[in-house]
Design a protein around this nucleic acid. Sequence first.
DNA 1: CTCCGAGTGCTTGTATACAATAACTGTCTA
DNA 2: TAGACAGTTATTGTATACAAGCACTCGGAG
Lengths: 250, 250
Amino acid sequence: MTAAPPPRHPHPYNRSMSTRPIRTNRRTVYDELRRRVIGLDFGPGAPLSENELAAELGVSRTPVREALIMLAQDGLVQVFPKVGSFVSRVDAQRVSDAQFLREAVELASLDDIPADPDPEVVKELRENLAQQELAADDLDQFFVLDEQFHHGLLRLAHHEGTWQSVVAAKAHLDRARRLGLHDRSLHDFIVQHTQVLDALLTGGAEEARPLMRAHLRAVFDDIERLRARSPELFAPSVGQPTRRNIAVWE
Amino acid sequence: MTAAPPPRHPHPYNRSMSTRPIRTNRRTVYDELRRRVIGLDFGPGAPLSENELAAELGVSRTPVREALIMLAQDGLVQVFPKVGSFVSRVDAQRVSDAQFLREAVELASLDDIPADPDPEVVKELRENLAQQELAADDLDQFFVLDEQFHHGLLRLAHHEGTWQSVVAAKAHLDRARRLGLHDRSLHDFIVQHTQVLDALLTGGAEEARPLMRAHLRAVFDDIERLRARSPELFAPSVGQPTRRNIAVWE
DNA sequence: CTCCGAGTGCTTGTATACAATAACTGTCTA
DNA sequence: TAGACAGTTATTGTATACAAGCACTCGGAG
């Protein structure tokens, strides 16, 4: 085996307490593209040209390219070398796996929520639910509040670090949901959220777990129903890509 | 709300069945750097210079830089704009979260393993365990086999898609383990692996779950014991970085 | 009509030049 | 001595030029 030397480096992190949340163009482009992919502004399978995006966003290829690499790691974009980049298909297996991971993590986290949860976070969750009622017609805003709600539950369990994985999985679920959620009422989901929180605060994890499971399953069932109705939206992402047609108009 | 148009793109993916697993320099550099970070060739907090790495690996800054961006998304590297890139600290909270996610996913997956599991995968798992016995002294090889083993269990549950998240979490756990595993015997872990598989095949998920939980907890306990003994290795990654010293010799 | 092959224009991959900035070093000033 | 301040240098961020490769187009051979 390699010696695996235990190196020690003096002080890579230390003084200068000021937080500097520098916003690079790469980050801005990443956030924007991610929003468009999840919001279906860029549909599954849509071709993404680094040059076009760079021109549209007013930057060079470099930050666009780097943002695409990050999105590819999220599984939201597929890059085919020397061929092209495409928005990932909504793959049924991937959606199923995302659901599985989310369910496993969120249900397990309920067990780690202390009996005396952080009142500050609880207050935020209550306010969040109130806002959900007000935003029951706005799909975009609902998804924002939905993320904050589930994120808050993980914070209660002191497992905020897993949120990154959960939100990555949730991205695939949300994209699938949007494919068929145009006219559906969000009221049921909001009621489920309220039930979960109430059960958690009064009866603890034991009471909340079945309700949370039912809620997550309801989301998944929605997707499964859509898949049964419109299977073409869930085309498997097996095949190889082809370049987009070169032919121009004139 | 935005119209959220459901765009349809003709055929971004279709013909040409030949699989082309093109290996780019970016991918090669990513794999190599990831190996070095997890293998502690690059210790926690070590500075990573894009120029130095490019020179050493014989490529330009571009693939190195893109590989660092990918590693940053994995949480193994932290990039401070205009300051420098550093190997992430082994943060106790992050290790704990990784353990939590891994445990939640792997335990939940046991429930989804069919009573009649894929004999091909089972055969691979058996052979894997035999190899583990032979490699009980080679830490590097053990980690490879360990990954294959846990990956195989997820494949049995038909949740291979979650492996990416699990292996990302496992990376942080393994890095912490290596900090204090130099002389420890791996035999216990191999025995636990065998017990889990045997229990799964004879008694199903019910029998396997407590053994799997005990195994994962044993890994985590190892890390916690190390943290109690050498807390300086787990310095929190709060603070800001400083540039590495410019001073040259002459 | 069919097939084949060169040409062409797009794509991403890589290399490189330059810009912006952070932090250290030394000097100057009080 | 202490502190301010400008200079220096290394760092990453960004832009751009070029390389490599794929897929379509189109013309010609049979």
